[in-house]
Design a protein around this nucleic acid. Structure first.
Lengths: 197, 197
DNA sequence: GACGGTGAGACGTTTTCCGTCTTATTGTCT
DNA sequence: AGACAATAAGACGGAAAACGTCTCACCGTC
């Protein structure tokens, strides 16, 4: 069995090619060559070609993003702390993502679409998959979902276009910004600020 | 009359496009769009299309390079100083050229070809055009040409692949490196080390 | 109003890319 | 050894993109 399964190799290659040429200019042959794989193999692993491949790449990057995000906030047991740290960590991760920065600089269109139009629903779905369980001790799902939804949108918006009034990459600034909203919402959910046992 | 003549606008656009997509991936339409010019105009100014256009771009960059180079060594009246400063300034200019660095990183092939294969003869020709007159007071043309030829090749080689033994971007290191060769050559030319009046 | 320069875009051709398929090779398992 | 799965290499036809040329309408200048 191989250490790096074919899919991962190809996705890595696709990412490299994107940084080098931009999504618009990359061809399937470029990716196959960069992955050291024949076109036939690529089409076998990603039937449907470039679209499927890029969907898979985006899916993997979303998963990686939330993997590291959830790892970073592990062990937080206060509701407000948890939300604040999530938003701050997400904002910092977005800012530190050099691949994202490169893409955003060279072809804003496709990145913006991925963050705000076509891609947002899937981001929200993944966010719910990852963050829902984490918020479970504090909120029941029917309240967690709209909160996650809002946090994702707010985080993305302030990342794409920073505000003079708040810096979501700064813990205290983010806390001051988020507290009012969390305070209004907290009484509604009917659970204590500390997690249920 | 326009401030920026069409040619320059288009060459600037081509340069931008190259940095963004790499020479292989750029199309004539990309360049025309980036220049804010119709394809018809582009073909009128550069009959022959992409090849002619890129030749013109390379020619312009060579000229610009030697323009700034000769400006930087202006006023030197000692032969050894002159050669040393030329080599050092050229090396530093190459190292500081961010466009060159970008291209070299993203598509080494075409850049190397431009510096060592197809492009070298033209570099040598331009170098002779610019540096010949400058060396005139010290060397007659039949001795100047082979010297320029060698200096260009050496500078390029040490730029592309730096040596542990000498740093041609450092004045003293370059001087120590060049002096023996210049000393051997000087008696041959039959002219004094100070320029003729 | 004539005129040169330009943008928009139609056109036929050439090149590239796509997605599928076949064949030969390689490495693995039995 | 032989069967088998996975793969590389590349042929193939159709689709899409890029090329280079051309026409025509427009606009500013003379």
């Amino acid at each position: 069995m191989r250490i790096n399964t074919g899919e991962a190799r190809i996705l890595d290659a696709a990412k490299e090619c994107c940084e080098r040429w931009g999504m618009e200019k990359v061809t399937v042959d470029d990716i196959a060559a960069a992955a050291g794989v024949s076109r036939a193999t690529l089409y076998r692993l990603f039937p449907g070609g470039k679209d499927v491949l890029f969907d898979a790449l985006h899916a993997r990057e979303r998963a990686e993003f939330f993997d590291t995000l959830t790892a970073e906030i592990d062990g937080t047991d206060d509701f407000e702390d948890l939300v604040v740290r999530l938003v701050v960590a997400a904002t910092r991760a977005l800012r530190d993502d050099s691949h994202l920065a490169t893409m955003l600089a060279s072809e804003p269109g496709s990145v913006l679409s991925e963050l705000t139009l076509d891609g947002l629903p899937q981001i929200l779905r993944v966010a719910n998959d990852y963050l829902g369980p984490i918020l479970k001790p504090f909120l029941d799902p029917e309240h967690a979902e709209p909160l996650i939804d809002l946090l994702v949108r707010v985080t993305i918006s302030y990342f794409l276009s920073p505000s003079d009034h708040v810096d979501l990459g700064d813990t205290e600034s983010a806390r001051a910004f988020l507290r009012p909203g969390l305070a209004v919402m907290s009484p509604v959910d009917g659970r204590p600020n500390q997690p249920n046992p």
